[in-house]
Nucleic acid binder design. Structure first.
Lengths: 229, 229
DNA sequence: ACCTGAACACCGTTCAAGT
DNA sequence: ACCTGAACACCGTTCAAGT
């Protein structure tokens, strides 16, 4: 049944979280997310489905890990001549990776957990705007406007981080811990809570406001192009 | 087992596609899309799961029907003072409905079939831009730029309609049939195929081009806002 | 014409038992 | 410490059989 059967001298490679996730990603790359079941991933590794539970908590957590691998492939090193071309390159890198893993965009949108690779990506993303001279408020809007375009996670991740921030005691600790690892996220959150006294951000951002902001941004731009034609 | 058991005089209401879809939508509204299985929908209607197959081809087609119901709820009648506020209202109506059916946005993104309610929505959408004096090319860009924001279907639907259009023999027939029912879609497709000789649109639109267009539109708008601050 | 019982080939997940 | 057999409670779907 296993592919290792005819090589008894070769000790089987031990399972690991890494191996499980890589097997799952390669199954999804080949056959779409529908080709990923605990049983099939186990089979790919020459192991029963139940063995996977020693390395991932459950399927949901396995999907988190798969997305982390994909997000980790996005090149964060690009540093172009100005903020605009840097951001443009960043978006292209992200898109390129998501095109390589066609299943990932849909899965990404179902994730609600913030994982370190996701937070790292977001911090880098925010950093580009900050270095471009954007205020924290406008950076926040920018993330919502661009968010659903490449990585559909922006709303949810912000909701989570802001839910935590809403508790003032947790807030101080969180910010302290985050400051080193995620300087841009921290700076933005601090700025914004000072700017509006937590009104917009404290109890989760107002999705309606963000939606209208993005729509108006696009409509204004379209109008300009029409008039220029 | 059924809720009708204690009322033998009352003849059971006969099943119908309509009743099946409404039951499925209400299950999804209450418990999310995970609460929708053939067995549970059957149970909701006091019927076995297998009976549903007399009214929907399979689960996939049931999901199509559920989405149609939701899309059909979007108010297409708004006609504001100009194209911009009309489009703004349209986007708000769509968003409002999708917020009411929280499961629908994700399901919408997995649909690949063009259904009449979807085409009707698209035609109305295009009509707003056309009446606002937009060229067909810019209208096409606009749909891509706004598409993923409210209804994530734009890309796929366009790919389909353009795939059909790529066959010149089918094209003439299709356009003739569509002209009455969907005047705006037809007009746009005709214009675009004349404008660029089918280069951009004939063999499916260039997703990369559309992606860059949308990103640049947003980045330019953000820059303007930053400088105005 | 419409509904169902029985069956098939799948799922995710648990837990005690093996090594 | 890690892997597995057996089992549970689910899936979507079919088809011949009932009414």
């Amino acid at each position: 049944m296993t592919t290792q059967a005819e090589s008894p001298a070769q000790p089987r490679i031990p399972l690991s979280r890494e191996r499980v996730l890589r097997a799952a990603v390669s199954l999804a790359d080949e056959g779409g997310i529908g080709a990923v079941s605990m049983r099939k991933v186990g089979n790919e590794l020459g192991v029963e489905a139940m063995s996977l539970y020693n390395h991932v908590a459950n399927k949901e957590e396995m999907l988190d890990g798969m997305v982390d691998i994909v997000v980790g492939e996005i090149d964060l090193a690009v540093d172009d001549v100005d903020w605009k071309s840097t951001m443009r390159s960043r978006m292209m890198s992200a898109r390129q990776i998501l095109v390589q893993h066609k299943w990932a965009a849909a899965v990404l949108e179902t994730r609600t957990n913030m994982t370190p690779p996701m937070i790292k990506y977001m911090d880098s993303f925010i950093g580009i705007f900050r270095e471009g001279g954007f205020s924290s408020g406008l950076t926040h809007h920018a993330m919502h406007a661009l968010g659903s375009r490449v990585l559909g996670f922006t709303q949810e991740m912000f909701d989570d981080s802001e839910a935590l921030e809403a508790n003032p005691e947790v807030k101080a600790m969180m910010l302290q811990q985050m400051k080193d690892q995620y300087p841009n996220i921290s700076a933005m959150l601090v700025d914004i809570s000072h700017e509006d006294g937590g009104e917009t951000v404290g109890d989760g951002c107002d999705d309606d406001v963000e939606f209208v902001f993005a729509v108006d941004l696009i409509l204004d731009g379209l109008e300009r192009l029409r008039d220029a034609e």
